[in-house]
Design a protein around this nucleic acid. Structure first.
Lengths: 329, 329
DNA sequence: TTGTACGCGTTATCAG
DNA sequence: CTGATAACGCGTACAA
């Protein structure tokens, strides 16, 4: 069913039908009604693709993330999809993994789909491959980078103050009389490095030399969190508090403490980051740094659509994190 | 950059360029090379939309689910996206909530996008609204229904044996000397009703009259699971085992038992359904019925693409669930 | 107020 | 082996 079919049935031309569909003025009321009735009768829906071909847009948004299964990405996706829908856009979510090959493949796919804008989520994407990919393939559409940044004219950034956030975590632990603190996290993304920076900065404020700090490297999985925490228990008996760079890793750590019979928070305080559901599920519930992923995603989606539709926004905004305290501290 | 631009640069016609892009035979090797070089030089990518206009396909797949934030949907989405990408398709995920209005809106959106096929996930969608929606809007594209069924010519179904699965859960609990069993779950979807049916059937095998069964109604949230479990603890002191219709609800229940100081599994055995990460996170870890969501999603995606590309498959397949036993039983 | 003609970027058909 | 042309479904100047 095309506008031509409807036009024929109505005894008018296709352009008239088009005008009715798009609520353009200058149509006799009776014609408009007749066409509208036909449209409804055959429940005609315009082909967005054909429309896009002439309008030079697709109302499609590319969403790049490492892995939708991580809880904070899931929440983000949900919020973004709802917003996009409301604005008449659809999202194409690509799990672009963590190595350059997949990222560049995802970029090509989105280019091929002629998406109107791209949302990049997670600082894993803050690398040369992606930066060059944007320059080459997305130079004429807006890009919003959540939790990362590129200094390119068409890229907007929404960031969380992760460095400050971790500093506040350290402050909290110190306030709770836990000055012997370890940091467990992945060290391979800009975001992780920010967190470690915050840790170092805060610890130095409390007079710890950088050489004395306990910073353990860990993969982004529960299992890895478990293993590293076992090593921590065995190798650093003085530690009384741990900050994990992600809730998922913290969940693994919580399990290790549980298995080792270490009481939380009495013998060990634990803080995760991201404030996902994991903090609520573990026993005891663990404290987590809320880095405002939900707000970040809403902001990012809004800024992206604004940019597509010609509304102005600052190139870079920073959201302030806060700590959700639970039983583990 | 269009094929015309490339054609002009190469001094050939657009059709020749098109033929090179699509690896059609009958092009002089030298011409082919020259065009290929130009294509690469300008990193040209064909416009999928324009392509779809003439090919009458979009290589777009609609994915309908209630809420991507539920852990089993997330896992599914991940698996499906990976498969689709590999086959050259993109997915459009719509969180179609749980009421009719949203469902029909989502269906219209997908129709407007002219998706090549639709994947519906979750038995919440097994209702008249969606069935009529399919008849009206998706009558000429294949639809795969994961965890639900419609008796329509273009709909394929992939199901889990949830009724049998719950029966086996009861068997397990009885084997563990817990014959006083309660079932806690939502009663509002076909899937939930299947589970309750399995519960009733198994319990009757062990000589319990239907009237004597403890079946509590609960919303699909951790909080609701917590509240209902508190009521259970207060109101049914004889109960020694609980089957929850979803892991998320079970997680709430685990918390309620923890708060009440009830030992698991000594005083109470717990089984969840879906075998999500929640079972691993709680303390102690809880047993869960694995209803094969991951396999289901892979199968569903495969069947959908098969149908689109003209390969045959059975209209209806059933996957056998099994129980992943952990510390709670 | 309405219709004609064209173009969006691509592929397929047919002619050369 | 290659090029011209039409067509996909729609929106929009321009003409009537």
């Amino acid at each position: 069913m095309t506008i031509y079919d409807i036009a024929e049935l109505a005894g008018v031309s296709a352009s008239t039908v088009s005008r009715v569909i798009n609520n353009k003025p200058g149509i006799k009321a009776s014609t408009r009604e007749k066409v509208k009735a036909l449209l409804k009768e055959h429940n005609y829906t315009p082909d967005e693709n054909a429309r896009g071909l002439v309008n030079k847009n697709t109302r499609l948004i590319g969403i790049l993330l490492a892995d939708i299964r991580s809880a904070h990405h899931t929440d983000l996706t949900y919020a973004v999809e709802k917003y996009l829908r409301q604005k008449g856009y659809c999202g194409i979510i690509l799990n672009a993994g963590s190595h350059a090959g997949e990222m560049i493949e995802a970029i090509r796919i989105l280019e091929q789909r002629r998406v109107d804008g791209v949302l990049i989520v997670g600082s894993v994407f803050q690398n040369d491959t992606v930066e060059n990919g944007i320059k080459e393939h997305f130079s004429n559409i807006p890009v919003v980078f959540a939790n990362g940044q590129f200094d390119l004219p068409n890229v907007y950034c929404v960031l969380a103050d992760e460095c400050d956030g971790v500093e506040h975590c350290v402050d909290l632990l110190v306030k709770k009389q836990r000055e012997q603190i370890a940091f467990v996290g992945t060290g391979d993304t800009p975001s992780s490095r920010e967190k470690i920076k915050g840790f170092k900065r805060a610890m130095s404020r409390y007079g710890h030399s950088e050489a004395s700090l306990v910073i353990l490297d860990c993969e982004a999985s529960r299992e890895s969190g478990y293993q590293i925490t076992r090593q921590l228990i065995g190798g650093y008996p003085d530690i009384r508090g741990v900050i994990y760079s992600e809730d998922l890793i913290a969940a693994g750590g919580m399990r290790a403490f549980w298995d080792a019979g270490i009481q939380i928070p009495e013998e060990m305080a634990v803080i995760g980051i991201d404030n996902t559901i994991y903090g609520e599920l573990c026993c005891p519930r663990f404290t987590s740094l809320d880095n405002k992923m939900t707000e970040m995603s809403s902001e990012a989606a809004r800024i992206l659509i604004d940019a597509i539709e010609g509304r102005q926004n600052p190139r870079k905004i920073m959201l302030l994190s806060d700590i959700v305290e639970r039983e583990s501290t």
